[in-house]
Design a protein around this nucleic acid. Structure first.
Lengths: 235, 235
DNA sequence: CGTGTGATTGACGCCTGTCAACGTCTGTGG
DNA sequence: CCACAGACGTTGACAGGCGTCAATCACACG
């Protein structure tokens, strides 16, 4: 994927059938297109930081971004990941507040920056876009509420199994059943909300129980049903 | 407050300066007004339940509602409270999904029911309303994210102190510094995400430490600064 | 006065966070 | 090419926070 694709075709992130931009009329698409700027970002780059003022939002053309908050003692809590087609930073733009999360590139990415004014223009002029955006935020809200319930009621073991399943659903696996996302043990701990050592021990137990196989940061899922059982998920 | 107030005046929940309805034009206000229905609900009444289909949302004229999810073992996790001027159930309406929370009356309430079609009409026709609604959902999302971080990183003790402060800010106190909301120990536990017994023991410790005074379900705050310190809040 | 719900207290033990030491791997610079 | 630094992963020991179970108390209500 070359960055010049923006010039050749309307970026994927703005054009696919599931995109929040799917209900724009041609003129609006042109406007978004003309006012957006795409750039490459390499792993480890910070897109924006907590407390920073943000004047526009980003649409993800490719790559993976992690979005986290910093707790009072400096520990990261990963809130969500964003991948191809997702948008980030729009919350701060809408609320006209300082960013309350930090976002960092996990896997080399191409992001399209869209100014806040464009966002406001679309909301005020296209009801279908507003509705789609509302649905998107509501979906995030529902996921956050579910996670609150899990983290408050489930054990670390259950949550870790659940997170592996969630990563499985969100990013999929390659032809060897290996998760298409690579995270450090610390990052896994920062999703689950536990200590790095606990993640290491539990992953090792999961391996013993034939739920997964491990090879460095690669996680291969062996038994989805058993993972669901471990996570206490019945659906 | 008599329920017939609706007839006498535009309901508070739709008319105050902070309401999401504040940017409606007169015609739209009339429409909302004509299509809404207000009713009284007594403590303990369930407004809607998880898994139920919802065709409209509610605007709270008076009283307090608790909104919770049920964990896999049946334990409640309280997600938030709603009070005068707040709206509930709009998420399910917008997403056209079954309710994923249950809401129950904590304190006798008057709710105004507004059909989903009215909501969609407003979103599609009034950009300022859409924007206000988006801001509202974003605010909820930000609060949910903060709570995820807290619950994942803080101890039960810290969270309980934080919840008391949060109730203090949200519902205020009477002239004796007693919180304007009355919750059972179990409900407190279901916010914090812990066992009822733990809440009892910690409240008792807070009392010993002169942070609060207790009298049944009444909680009197004695030292906000010390509570903040206990909660590890520095702001 | 019996019944039921909620509050309290105590005992007990396990899950899990913390600390410390060590192993592994990668990239860098001499 | 090797040595070293630094980041990351692993393992063990240990304690304490907190969940669970059980018994008792307090209070309201029919």
């Amino acid at each position: 994927m070359d960055i010049n694709d923006k010039i050749e075709s309307f970026p994927y992130c703005m054009d696919n059938i599931n995109s929040v931009f799917r209900h724009l009329i041609p003129d609006e698409k042109d406007k978004v297109y003309n006012e957006s700027t795409c750039s490459e970002y390499t792993r480890g780059t910070t897109i924006y930081r907590e407390g920073q003022r943000i004047n526009g939002f980003y649409c993800i053309q490719s790559g993976i971004i992690k979005i986290f908050k910093t707790g009072f003692d400096g520990k990261e809590q990963i809130i969500r990941f964003a991948k191809k087609g997702d948008i980030i930073a729009f919350r701060s733009v809408l609320s006209a507040e300082l960013a309350c999360t930090t976002s960092e590139v996990i896997e080399d990415s191409i992001l399209c920056y869209i100014p806040g004014d464009t966002l406001f223009y679309l909301i005020k002029n296209n009801g279908n876009f507003s509705l789609d955006l509302l649905k998107l935020v509501c979906k995030e809200l529902e996921e956050a509420n579910s996670y609150i319930t899990d983290i408050a009621q489930k054990t670390v073991r259950e949550r870790l199994a659940e997170i592996i399943l969630h990563l499985h659903d969100t990013f999929g696996v390659n032809n060897e059943n290996i998760l298409n996302i690579s995270l450090t043990r610390e990052e896994l701990a920062n999703i689950v909300g536990t200590a790095t050592e606990s993640v290491i021990r539990l992953l090792s137990e999961f391996k013993t129980d034939k739920l997964i196989e491990l090879s460095g940061r690669k996680i291969k899922t062996l038994n989805i049903q058993a993972l669901k059982k471990t996570a206490n998920i019945y659906s």
